[in-house]
């Protein structure tokens, strides 16, 4: 199917982009990689008066190393981040999760920030951002720059705290040291949206931050210490899960119970190594 008509604007700077957002607000949508947005436009699931294409804003196409955090600009594609030479060392959890994001061809175009902005409940990058305690950087003419913790940013299924006139300019992944990480997910086909996605960061004593995507409207994170299997099983029962074509809530919970302890164990093992 073909999209409905829209105006197209391609700003060259962030200033221009936020000026456009100030002008159009809810009537505009940001086009970065388009791997989630354009299918929805094509299917006429959404409508927009103006499409603001930020893919050529050079200042957004930057991976910034700020020492204890890595800032990834809004035009940076997933494959660009994947090819960043320091990724494995600085952001091993992101490195572990990126190969699960879509396919080579969609990662070529899809952006890291776009994935966070889209806020799919089982999506990998929002989950990783949440587990690492990362941040989202927003800019608007009215509010200037706002930095929101991942937790405050993603509110529910496809719902975020971004105001209509705000542009996500970057996401920030904290660099964590002296810890091990692991990531796993279950999808029907390779590259599909996950049924559940699981990420863990653990220290040498075995204390872990465990994040789970696909069990509620947004990724959830909990500290797990001690008997991981028991703690995970108890937690999974608290999470409501949801039904869709491919998985029942019970299946989702059982997948987390079955897989999360292994993910935690892997993270602990990596920490030791």
């Amino acid at each position: 199917m073909k999209p409905r008509p829209f105006d197209y604007v391609r700003p060259d700077t962030v200033e221009e982009a936020i000026a456009l957002l100030a002008e159009y607000g809810d009537d505009a949508r940001i086009l970065a990689g388009g791997q989630s947005l354009v299918p929805m436009l094509n299917l006429r699931l959404i409508e927009t008066r103006v499409l603001i294409d930020i893919s050529r804003v050079a200042e957004l196409d930057v991976i910034g190393d700020r020492g204890n955090l890595i800032e990834v600009g809004a035009a940076v594609t997933q494959n660009k981040l994947m090819a960043w030479p320091q990724l494995k060392q600085k952001l091993p959890l992101v490195a572990a999760a990126l190969p699960f994001v879509g396919h080579f061809q969609t990662r070529n175009k899809g952006t890291v920030c776009g994935s966070v902005a889209h806020a799919d409940p089982s999506s990998e990058l929002p989950l990783v951002l949440a587990v690492l305690g990362g941040e989202v950087v927003l800019r608007s003419q009215q509010r200037g720059t706002r930095v929101l913790a991942a937790e405050a940013f993603q509110q529910d299924m496809l719902t975020t705290a971004r105001a209509a006139d705000e542009l996500i300019t970057a996401v920030r992944f904290p660099v964590i040291e002296g810890k091990g990480v692991a990531f796993n997910e279950v999808a029907r086909r390779h590259g599909d949206f996950a049924i559940v996605a699981i990420a863990a960061v653990a220290d040498a004593r075995g204390a872990a931050q465990l994040g789970v995507g696909g069990l509620s409207g947004r990724p959830v994170v909990r500290a797990i210490d001690g008997d991981a299997a028991a703690a995970v099983a108890a937690w999974a029962e608290e999470l409501e899960g949801y039904e869709d074509l491919h998985a029942s809530a019970a299946l989702r919970r059982d997948l987390v119970k079955n897989l999360a302890p292994d993910v935690i164990a892997e993270a602990i093992e990596k920490c030791a190594a």
Binding site: L31, G34, T106, K109
Partner: peptide, 26 residues
Amino acid sequence: EHGVCGCCTVLIDGVAQRSCLTLAVQ
């Protein structure tokens, strides 16, 4: 036309991508 099958893949500046998820003006 919704980004799954891959048969519309072309190179833009050398990078393989779905042409059905790209606007001509892009």
